[in-house]
Design a protein around this nucleic acid. Structure first.
Lengths: 141, 141
DNA sequence: TCAGAATCGTCAGGAACCTGTCAAATTTTG
DNA sequence: CAAAATTTGACAGGTTCCTGACGATTCTGA
């Protein structure tokens, strides 16, 4: 599959794979995986989220999210507390360490992402995001 | 991660995941996986490609490609021949069955993809593809 | 109010991907 | 031309994701 569009979806996939690779490189010096970074972002935005909340937010499964969170808990990036109203569930929070690691990595990731878009103006960028948002949710009856 | 852009890369990921899901549904009635469909496309475009060629084209590894091709060979969608000039390598071709399955599935996938983009004009679509192509290759020094 | 449906975190097992490695073959380099 | 470097398909082992299932809990609607 060269540059000719054989299938739009695979063009998006290749964009994602490359962006993931770029991000992986950016996060390497911070000793964070892409999945860990995503999880830190989610917990920053949704403090006290449950495992299931995290899984949904990162478009994954509860099982995968749980395993990832277990590792991050061991690394003291996150902490879990019993949920005060729901005995099946937990509230998960960033630790101070988790937060500082996120704040260290975030500008680096953003800078790398910005570099990728050099040459596209604000209108084009906005339009692309609109398109991506559509792609992210369309097609389900 | 809601609709607010916390991280561009994850927006692209979600677009891909959803498009993959849509494609999966479209291919279900054809009893083809997304990876198989991608491989059929590659072999249609590059008849006689090697395992390594296929792997590169679908942005995967030789090992994964080889396993996938093995399954497709067993299902008589593809056939492998020794390479006439390179004794390490094979030339892989679509069988008539593989071709007919691809031709049956292709319009359905394209139709579904087109539906996703309803409301975006030709200029916007071209611009998005330019952006995606950039994202697919930028960032490597 | 209560029964059935849905959801929770977790366990178990498996699929689909990966990296490392190998011997042989081919290509590149000086 | 020979040595070094790279590439090939395949084996081995591992990682990361998945689905199915469970008992407990919560939600829903009649």
């Amino acid at each position: 599959m060269g540059n000719d569009e054989i299938c739009l979806s695979f063009l998006v996939r290749q964009a994602w794979l490359n962006m993931r690779s770029v991000m992986d490189s950016a996060l390497a010096t911070h000793d964070l995986s892409v999945a860990q970074y995503a999880t830190l972002l989610v917990l920053d935005e949704q403090p006290g989220a449950s495992v299931a909340d995290v899984a949904r937010a990162v478009a994954s499964t509860r099982q995968s999210a749980n395993e990832l969170l277990a590792g991050m808990e061991r690394a003291t990036m996150v902490e879990r507390h019993p949920h005060p109203q729901d005995r099946r569930s937990q509230k998960i929070h960033l630790t101070a360490l988790g937060r500082s690691r996120l704040e260290a990595a975030r500008p680096v990731v953003h800078a790398r992402e910005s570099e990728l878009e050099v040459g596209f103006d604000a209108g084009e960028r906005a339009m692309v995001r609109e398109w991506l948002a559509r792609m992210a949710r369309a097609g389900h009856d």
